[in-house]
Nucleic acid binder design. Sequence first.
DNA 1: ACCTGAACACCGTTCAAGT
DNA 2: ACCTGAACACCGTTCAAGT
Lengths: 234, 234
Amino acid sequence: MANTTRSRRERPAKPALSRQWIIAETLEIIRTEGLEKATMRRVAHALDTGPASLYVYIANTAELHSAVLDELLGALPPESEGTWSERLEALLRSYADVLFAYPGLARSALLIRPTGPNAVRLYDRVLGLLLEGEVAVDRAAWGLDLLLQYVTGNAAEHSTPSPGDIDTPADDEAEMGILARALHAADPTTTPHIAEHADLVLSGEPTQRVTWAIQALIAGIAATPTPVATDIRP
Amino acid sequence: MANTTRSRRERPAKPALSRQWIIAETLEIIRTEGLEKATMRRVAHALDTGPASLYVYIANTAELHSAVLDELLGALPPESEGTWSERLEALLRSYADVLFAYPGLARSALLIRPTGPNAVRLYDRVLGLLLEGEVAVDRAAWGLDLLLQYVTGNAAEHSTPSPGDIDTPADDEAEMGILARALHAADPTTTPHIAEHADLVLSGEPTQRVTWAIQALIAGIAATPTPVATDIRP
DNA sequence: ACCTGAACACCGTTCAAGT
DNA sequence: ACCTGAACACCGTTCAAGT
């Protein structure tokens, strides 16, 4: 009886399943517990239903994660100030920030190739900025993929496998420790360059390195001719 | 390994569990059925034992996959002919080939940061070739990570999620189809650059694009100064 | 000492059956 | 028409108990 004038702090008592609602709930779980907890079963449970019900709206787990990512890409900051390359760097960094903020989603992004409307808008902005910088259109077109893949791959590599979870107390740090130990233990006979330059290989803050990498990518893209004929346009 | 004089085609009847044997069996499963089938349970089953037995030799699933990858890296071709950049390209392509040959392993490589002895040897070869090309040592040191991450990420992106399995009839192709459709359907008003250059963005054979990307990366690495002081050496 | 059966706590996905 | 209980076929990992 007395339908729905309930405490808003409590679960809103079965607010009718829908694609939007499922995505929102999934995002909430990813935010608080990480991607690996955002399972069909767990999302269904959070929505007070069984897993089978989700399949009315979402084809499978991959599509669920894909939809969440596109949702997030819709919230990228719209435009910054500066030269084309500064704006491009800022855009890519904001994309990287999204992926870092939701550890595990980068891994999804790497495998499912985002194709939602917001992803396409991101592609368009990157391509537009490269063209504004007078990068040859064929290099810009191929460079688009290279830039986004780098950022995505980098985020995937550095995002902790299980965020708020059991293992991985300070995961990326621990990971780096393992790598650092492996490099410092390098045998000077069989691996002389690593043995000599281990510190340099490991040097730099992550943000410094991402910034440098993006600059290097842009420079390389602008300077390297593709095998694709450029005389496509009249 | 472990030369038991048996019919090599039949299962060698419980050849005593060992780390090497587990890794070899896992590799075989990955080769024939894909990474996602190389579960602790399935490997244990293939070795005629229960999953608990594997934990005597291997800490967890991640370590198992990690060990398999390092095993594969030990078989990279040793040295090619040509200029330093040609040899570097060849080396990176052979690394990419390994990852492509074992779909799914690239994804692991992206997340676990290979640190085995063979991985370190690969790092050393890449770094050595960059230095041979007279790339500044700080740029070479940072570029190492950029190059390997690109190749790994690229392989991860293009490797089919489930190789010899139920879904994904021609998976990467299907994926590309989805992307192609999304780009060709781009709205000329909101995403004008993509709408105009969709074909160019999608153009080129995968190998052409990888080759171009590696060249662009090398050029960018060589040309972009890092914030790390270069006057480390006397 | 070395190994493992059995259990615990989960998964994705399907489909017959309910409302 | 829309939804879902229950089942199917799996997972990783642990630990008490066996040899």
